[in-house]
Structures are given as C-alpha cells and as structure tokens.
Nucleic acid binder design. Structure first.
Length: 273
DNA sequence: ACCACAACCTGGCCGC
DNA sequence: TGCGGCCAGGTTGTGG
C-alpha cells in the first residue's frame, strides 16, 4: 500500500514522537512479523536501545539505534504505525507493541500481515539493492535512462521494480506515466531520450504533489496522526476507469499489466512505441 | 532477463 | 443472509 509519499508522511509524523526515545519493552504477538533475526533475538536486541534517528529509504522506514543496529519496517500493503499512551486499548490486527521511556507505546497494525520488521547491523542487507531515491538532488534522467536501457519489459513494470527507482508503487507509477504522456505498456528500453526526461520529471512532480497532500488514503492506509492523506482527490487516472481524462476528456481506460491494475488515457498516452 | 502465476493474508464489495 | 468470486497501495519465489 504505502508508497514513498505515504511512508515519508509516516516518518515525518513519527520523528518528534520517537527521536531520542529509549525502548523499554517489546511485545510481538505474531512472530512471522519478524523477518530477521529470530523473534527472541530481535526483542532482546531492541530492548534498552535508544532511537537516534528515523530515516526512510524507498518504502522502508529505518530506525537508527544507539547500539549501532538498525530496525527496519516495511509496511507492504496494509501496515500502520502509530503511538498511543500505555493504557490505550489494542486495535484488531495489532501484531506488535514497542514501549518507550516516556510512556508512549508504538503500535504496529497490519490487516493482511504482509509487513515485516528487520534488525540488522548493516542496513544494506535489506535495502542494498534499492535503486536511487527519486527525490534526491542527484537523481538525474541519465540514471533512469541507464537503468532501463536495453530492457524489454514494459515501462510500468520497470517503474514498479524497486531497483530501477525506489519508492514508486501502483498509484504513482500510473500517475507519473500519465503526466509524462507515455503508454504504460511501452517497452522500457525503447523510450526516446525526450520521453525518459519527461518521465523523470513526472515522477518527481507526482511524488512532490502527493507528499504535499500527505499521501493517499485509499482504504486501510491512515497516517499515524489519523489525519488522512488527500492525494486520492488529485489522482488523474488511477482508479478512474471511464471517467474523463483531466486533459482531453477521453474516458480513462483500464488494463492488467503483470498482474497489476493499470489506468491510462488512450489519447494522451498513445501506444506508439 | 522476461512473463505468468502463486504465495503470503484479510476484508470489502458485487452479483446471484 | 449467504456464498462464491474478484479486488486491493507490495514483494518474493517458481517454472517456463
């Protein structure tokens, strides 16, 4: 679910609540939540450490700990994180609680149980294969061009590949392709230089717009503050099948691409590739 | 390196 | 009301 703008929104909301907090107790209610190390070791290592920083890489949240280890969380489709007071009740689908030295408690909730926790000394063991951060200053069109050069997969599939660029998911891939006026089924390696440049620019624009709206709240994703994201009201094509294209009025079309729902404007995004 | 598909999970929605 | 089928913002693994 959450893509880069949603994860970044979560991070920003958590920073003031968690920075410098010491972890006093950890409760895991569903052990497969912990990808590595073994759940007992995970708990043992986490207790007693302090959170020195909270970062994001792609769709991963990274808690830097004063022990030198890193606690990483991937929310996948339905993961949610929020902080409550100790007496607060536990909501359904809550799989872990992490108690803090100021009386706050981090709740991890995840209806579909796809999300995972990791505790590692070297974060690259988890995020090492991710592509560049699309909002970083040094991400250039040439980098995107290089990573899709010669690839015969469709451009949408390549945008969902986190090694090409980190943080895009199904919503923002479709939105970026619309802004760039590129048909999602175009062969990635056959994009022209101008198209790649437009796509690079469109990705940044869509992510910045979504970030400003604090992400999309489609169904289960709600940021920690419970102030819902508002980008879903600004979507141009995603889940708008049959509705008029905001640019030309042509009805938005829907297709399946590598198993994922895909939306596009057949007029603005011609399949001429 | 590609694709299709299944798996991992639960719940909402739609049609019958 | 109930049931089957399909859908969902993600990732990983298998087999062809």
């Amino acid at each position: 679910m959450p893509e880069l703008p949603e994860v970044e929104t979560v991070r920003r909301e958590l920073v003031p609540l968690l920075t410098s907090r010491r972890i006093t107790r950890v409760e895991i209610y569903w052990h497969r939540l912990i990808d590595r190390p073994a759940p007992e070791i995970f708990v043992q290592h986490l207790v007693g450490t302090s959170i020195t920083a909270l970062r994001r890489r792609g769709k991963y949240l990274i808690f830097d700990l004063d022990s030198g280890e890193h606690w990483l969380i991937h929310l996948r489709m339905t993961g949610q994180i929020y902080v409550r007071q100790a007496q607060a009740p536990i909501d359904a689908h809550t799989h872990a609680r992490v108690y803090l030295d100021d009386g706050g408690v981090i709740h991890y909730r995840d209806q579909r149980k796809f999300g995972r926790f990791y505790l590692v000394r070297d974060e690259d063991q988890v995020v090492g294969d991710l592509g560049p951060e699309p909002l970083s200053e040094d991400w250039q069109p040439e980098d995107l061009a290089e990573r899709i050069r010669g690839r015969r997969a469709r451009i949408k599939t390549l945008l969902l590949d986190q090694r090409v660029v980190a943080g895009l998911g199904n919503i923002y891939a479709d939105e970026a392709l619309f802004l760039a006026r590129i048909h999602p089924a175009c062969e990635g390696g056959r994009l022209t230089e101008a198209q790649v440049r437009r796509l690079h620019r469109a990705i940044r624009q869509v992510l910045l717009e979504a970030l400003r709206a604090r992400g999309s709240t489609m169904s289960t994703y709600i940021p920690p503050s419970e102030r819902r994201g508002e980008y879903q009201q600004q979507r141009r094509v995603y889940r708008r099948k049959g509705q008029p294209c905001p640019v030309c009025g042509t009805p938005i079309e829907h297709m399946k691409l590598s198993g994922r729902s895909t939306y596009f404007c057949p007029r603005c995004q011609p399949f001429s590739c």
